[in-house]
Design a protein around this nucleic acid. Structure first.
Lengths: 147, 147
DNA sequence: TTGTCTGCAAAATATTTGCATATCA
DNA sequence: TGATATGCAAATATTTTGCAGACAA
């Protein structure tokens, strides 16, 4: 997984005439190893365990590159900061967000995607990407009633 | 429209033991009259035409109340600020957002909603609200090809 | 060598908050 | 009258940016 990601990143950088620095290598590796969703500050902490001199600015700048290289996807779950998730080996999906505990659950539904495309066709809109977020209570946080 | 909104707001305030001030009246009226989507700063400008002493803080605080009273819905179209739209007389809908010109188009699709509910049922999730945003190019901004 | 990066600190941005004063009920 | 609201300015918090020195190719 990480090896493939390194290849993708290397290719991306080369194609853009950018350099592979030790900081970028560290950030890439830690981002690929991170579980689930993580924020910039969190990634900074992870990276500093390996190289305590890495700066916040570099993390933000590298996150932008990893997004462009399509190695990460950026998500806004409405908590005032962006979170990231790995793209590689992680197909498209949408999210449930528990508004009590903050848990994120993923799902995939091709019928929904197809209906979105139909709506777009109706008005000649070219969808580039979309975001579907379902906010509410997860099983553990359901305020009674719903079992 | 505005009369009904004033009633809803008055009731909401009463029920919460809050006061109907002249600023709140102005902000409510201007928000109900505004076309489409507007931001806080924009609403502040509109309000200041009527009462130049209204402050940014009061606008933000009143927007929160109008949201709670379900007179406005808050949307984040990823431009770094929240925008608001009237709820009254404006049923639920989702959005297309043109990433070139910023145009917002609305649509409604019950089949999609139903499929969302089905997904939620599968994992015992109670949806409270959702957000579906389709980003891409509108008819006028399509980068050729698509006519 | 030279154009790109980095760390630092400061800037930018939208929204929120503390506080003394003003206002509604 | 007394609790709630307001305006102001300062505080937040996240992300971005300018710059001088450091580094990859």
């Amino acid at each position: 997984m990480t090896a493939e990601a390194e290849q993708v990143f290397t290719d991306y950088l080369k194609q853009k005439d950018l350099k592979l620095t030790s900081q970028r290598r560290t950030i890439l590796r830690r981002a690929m190893e991170a579980e689930g969703h993580f924020g910039a500050e969190e990634l900074l902490d992870l990276c500093r365990r390996e190289d305590s001199s890495i700066s916040k600015a570099t993390v933000y700048r590298t996150l932008a590159l990893l997004k462009e290289a399509r190695l990460l996807e950026e998500q806004d779950f409405g908590r005032g900061r962006m979170v990231y998730e790995r793209s590689l080996g992680h197909g498209h999906h949408d999210h449930f967000i528990c508004i009590r505990c903050g848990k994120i659950l993923e799902f995939e539904n091709n019928k929904i995607e197809r209906l979105q495309d139909e709506e777009a066709d109706k008005i000649d809109f070219q969808i580039v990407y979309h975001s579907l977020k379902l906010f509410g209570f997860c099983r553990d946080c359901a305020p009674q009633a719903s079992r």
